[in-house]
């Protein structure tokens, strides 16, 4: 039941808002000063004058233009591919009958639990074998294997796609692909949107594997580019924070600009169990 919100509700929500935004705002504050300023007591609460300068240093030092472009390509491709593959597989696992289904599903769920740090060595050997080092597909292709995506789409489609709808389409004479096209995708769209966003953000922020697979002069993603910041023995915290801000800002802008749609998408696509 929706009750009109009282003052307490607003008070608590405003506290929550402040806590959610504060670390981000403070990243900008830290990026706007100098090292010395960060060392003061009490710590700075307002912006200093160096924000443009530090952002500029971070931008050129980290080769950020190329990095941003690469990251958009990587995250976009990974998101599109993952959503496509996960929806198809999730649909099959949710609604179709085939041999070894349960075994394969268990395999999928099992891989969700495998810690990703370890695959790095064999994966790099594989990538090296294919001569893909420092090329974007070396981070794109492995990321397409999203067991979580399959699991997520299956859970959603279990509920969201009534069997009757499928059968009606079949009786109608629609072949497999047309069923997928006209029935499954429309039903799955909210969850696809959520998965796309989740995957995009994850691919955008991934750093562990890209640091190994890519180099800064080749085809760096944002997170790879940022590891070069700090100028070695003399890391400048303000510049590092400026870099962190640069890496986050594009996503934040998207979230603010399309906040309504993204939130709506998450709420529609939230797995109902």
């Amino acid at each position: 039941m929706r009750v009109r919100a009282g003052r307490m509700t607003y008070a608590v929500l405003i506290v929550f808002t402040v806590l959610s935004l504060f670390p981000l705002v403070w990243t900008a504050i830290a990026a706007s000063g100098t090292n010395g300023r960060l060392a003061r007591t009490p710590p700075p609460f307002w912006f200093g004058g160096n924000l443009p300068k530090n952002l500029g240093i971070a931008w050129t030092d980290a080769n950020m233009g190329v990095a941003l472009l690469n990251t958009v390509i990587v995250a976009g491709t990974v998101a599109a591919g993952t959503v496509l593959f996960s929806t198809l597989a999730g649909f099959a696992f949710a609604k179709l009958r085939f041999r070894f289904k349960n075994v394969l599903l268990l395999l999928v769920i099992g891989t969700m639990m495998v810690p990703p740090q370890l695959s790095v060595v064999p994966l790099f050997m594989l990538i090296a074998e294919l001569s893909w080092t420092d090329q974007l597909q070396s981070v794109v292709l492995p990321a397409l294997v999203s067991a979580f995506g399959v699991f997520f789409m299956r859970q959603y489609l279990l509920e969201a796609l009534p069997v009757e709808l499928l059968e009606a389409a079949r009786v109608d004479g629609a072949s497999g692909l047309r069923v997928v096209w006209h029935v499954v995708f429309p039903a799955a769209r909210p969850a696809m949107a959520v998965l796309a966003m989740l995957t995009f953000v994850m691919a955008w922020n991934d750093f562990f594997w890209p640091i190994i697979a890519l180099t800064q002069n080749g085809s760096p993603t944002v997170q790879v580019a940022l590891t070069g910041l700090g100028r070695g023995y003399i890391p400048d915290q303000s510049v590092i924070m400026a870099g962190a801000l640069l890496g986050t800002l594009p996503l934040l802008l998207v979230f603010v600009a399309f906040g309504r749609q993204i939130v709506g998408g998450i709420m529609q696509g939230a797995v109902k169990g």
Partner: peptide
């Protein structure tokens, strides 16, 4: 878009 992106990725990496 997905197909193009998939095809474009190696190109971009080259």
């Amino acid at each position: 878009a997905a197909a193009v992106a998939l095809g474009a990725a190696p190109a971009a990496g080259c």
